[in-house]
Design a binder for these strands. Structure first.
Lengths: 113, 113
DNA sequence: CCTGTACATTCCTTGACCGGAATATAACCA
DNA sequence: TGGTTATATTCCGGTCAAGGAATGTACAGG
């Protein structure tokens, strides 16, 4: 169940780095270890956090464990973001109108914003 | 400059709560304190984190300090999310094709996904 | 069966963060 | 200027996450 673990998982730069690596293509742990410059245990622990947050999935292949992104939580983030996206659209919209209004009006009702 | 402070700021549930409150409308600190159920100092500290992450702005009004959302970092988040959004669109697309294919094909190559 | 490879897990120490209490600061008002 | 309200900052104890070292586990090959 998606509690706050998604945000917690993404709060760490190394984990965001791993996520970015997996965006290019799925990778076994060894590759991630090299790319991150972290120790193998530390990397495995980060992978565990990402796994428990539902951000990645493992697919065993011989002795390798190949990690890949799972897109579901990303969608969740996007859903969280939606209301704020509206806000910023309104802002841009308002800015546009203001710029437009300055063409034929004196700044009598816009104190100092 | 936006370092990782944005993610760190949003990692805390209380701070996300504050953000949600400010989405409705700008509010003075006192209101936020009541709504959060946290102590005033603790709330002020969270507000400081949000401020330093660029997520909120203060507008002094008499003795009150009215906090409001700043939309810029939200846009930043959205930009970060963009590449992953692509990934998940591809997934949905693939799913759609698979559902479509099941209409005239036996499930011979879809083991247990 | 034994060895090596590829990961995961545990133990431990350190540093960061959280929350509350007390205190400091700033703005308004008489 | 002194007092009150509104907010910020500091200090402090407790908790939690991160990283390294050591160890455990699973799978392949000889």
């Amino acid at each position: 169940m998606p509690d706050g673990s998604l945000w917690t998982a993404l709060a760490d730069p190394h984990r965001r780095n791993i996520i970015a690596l997996l965006l290019e293509r799925p990778r076994p742990v060894g590759e991630i270890v090299e790319a991150c410059g972290l120790s193998q245990p530390s990397t495995s622990k980060h992978l565990k956090v990402l796994r428990e947050a539902g951000l990645v999935r493992v697919h065993q292949q011989a002795q390798r464990r190949v990690y890949a992104l799972d897109s579901a939580p990303i969608a969740e983030l996007d859903a969280w973001l939606a209301p704020y996206r509206q806000l910023w659209n309104e802002r841009l919209d308002a800015l546009g109108r203001r710029l437009d209004a300055t063409s034929d009006a004196t700044d009598s009702d816009t104190p100092k914003d």
